[in-house]
């Protein structure tokens, strides 16, 4: 029986979860499954992978509709296991260089990694970034008074 550790099975899984479109490549096209396999092993352990294989069944031999049905069945039957798979697939996909390029192509300033470049740090602009009419208040220490708890019946037993 095909295991989820097989490259073809992993590719079928990630491509069904994140197919491509006119801008974004499909998950398998950029090699996401190469990261997903070892990461699922890290996250789930061997037993977890076996459980996942059993829950999904063989995917690669199925058409898209069949794969979607299998993944939806996992999502419904074992939400925790599915969430681990989804986290792994999504994070592994969005770190792929071609996907970062697609995000940039949407017009966003987006780095491959946070450092070393970071992003521009414009100076704080008080004219724009402070309230025009500041509001707010605090109770000074000397003016802290006992509040009336009469209406808060649920608190009476615990007051001390």
């Amino acid at each position: 029986m095909a295991a989820i550790t097989d490259a073809a099975e992993l590719a079928a899984l990630v491509d069904t979860m994140i197919p491509g479109d006119e801008l974004f490549p499909s998950a398998a096209a950029v090699g996401t499954h190469g990261l997903v396999g070892p990461r699922l092993r890290q996250l789930l352990g061997r037993d977890g992978l076996a459980r996942l294989s059993a829950a999904l069944g063989p995917l690669a031999a199925l058409d898209r509709g069949g794969r979607e049905t299998a993944i939806a069945r996992l999502e419904s039957a074992d939400p925790e296991l599915f969430a681990a798979v989804r986290m792994t697939v999504y994070l592994s996909y969005y770190e792929q260089p071609a996907v970062v390029d697609a995000v940039r192509a949407m017009g966003h300033d987006y780095n491959d990694a946070p450092q070393p470049d970071g992003y521009a740090l414009p100076p704080f602009d008080p004219d724009q970034d402070l309230p025009r009419r500041p509001r707010g208040a605090f109770v000074p220490t000397a003016e802290v008074r006992r509040v009336d708890l009469a209406a808060l019946d649920f608190l009476q037993a615990g007051a001390r």
Binding site: L91, Y94, Q96, P97, V100, D112, A113, P114
Partner: peptide, 9 residues
């Protein structure tokens, strides 16, 4: 993790 593409993972 800041230096690598896997920083979110």
């Amino acid at each position: 993790p800041h230096w690598g593409a896997d920083w979110e993972w």
